Simulated scan of single mutants.
Amino acid sequence: MALVDADGHILALAVVPANVQDRDTRPALDDGKEKWPSLRLALLDGAFTAERCREWCNLHGMRHRVVDKDPHQKGFVVLERRWLVERTFGWLSHWGGLHRERAGRLDVATGRLACVASLLAANALNNPA
């Protein structure tokens, strides 16, 4: 689970076991939201339609919008702003942050992602768009 800004820069990451649904991990992003109080809009995918997701956004003073795919859609279609998080995951994968963690420990995986996120941030500072 990731909280990213409008450019796809990582603001917060949550590493959870595979048997936990994405929509149940939003409390893990509380610290990220507190560090970035200027965030006002959450764009969520269809997995976050639950009432508890709306409540989380309201608790943090954010509007939310669920970006759903068209029910009649056939084939691949780029959905509004959802590509942003996928691109961020692609960056993490490129830098080796999303490879299977052989130790099987969440703390090791979290540390690895934190290192990769730091590298991405340093790269963004060094190469401004």
Rank of each mutant, 00 (worst) to 15 (best):
N19R: 11
V85I: 15
D70W: 05
L120P: 02
N127V: 03
L3N: 03
L79K: 07
L41K: 09
D68C: 07
N127A: 10
A42D: 05
V78N: 08
L120T: 04
V77I: 14
P37Y: 04
V4N: 12
A12D: 12
A14Y: 00
V15R: 05
K35E: 13
R23H: 13
K33I: 15
L125W: 14
G61N: 12
D70T: 06
T25D: 02
V16Q: 11
W91Y: 14
K74S: 07
G97W: 00
L29N: 02
D24Y: 08
V16N: 05
R52Q: 09
W83M: 03
D22N: 14
L59S: 09
R81V: 03
F76H: 13
R26V: 10
G90S: 15
T49S: 12
L125P: 04
S93D: 15
A6L: 07
F48W: 05
R63C: 07
L113Q: 11
G111E: 08
P37A: 04
D24F: 08
R100F: 00
A109F: 05
M1H: 11
A12Q: 11
E80V: 07
K35W: 08
R65S: 13
G75D: 09
R26Q: 08
A28C: 10
Q21F: 13
A122H: 11
A28R: 12
L3I: 08
A129V: 11
C115V: 15
L79H: 04
L39M: 12
A28G: 06
R63L: 12
R82L: 11
L3P: 01
G97L: 01
E86N: 11
S38N: 09
A121E: 09
P27D: 07
R52W: 06
R63G: 10
K69E: 03
E86A: 13
L106H: 03
G97Y: 01
G61C: 08
K33P: 03
L79F: 01
S118C: 11
K69D: 01
G90V: 06
A14L: 05
A109D: 00
C53N: 14
D24R: 14
V85W: 05
V108N: 08
D5Y: 12
A18L: 04
L119I: 15
N58A: 15
R105K: 11
H60Y: 02
L59H: 11
W56E: 02
K69H: 10
D22I: 05
W95C: 04
T49V: 13
H94N: 08
H60E: 03
V108E: 02
C115F: 12
M62C: 12
W56R: 00
P128T: 04
A14P: 00
S118D: 06
K33Y: 12
R63P: 00
G8M: 04
G8K: 04
R52F: 01
W91N: 08
G32S: 05
A129F: 05
A14H: 12
P27M: 08
V77G: 02
V116L: 08
F89I: 09
E86W: 13
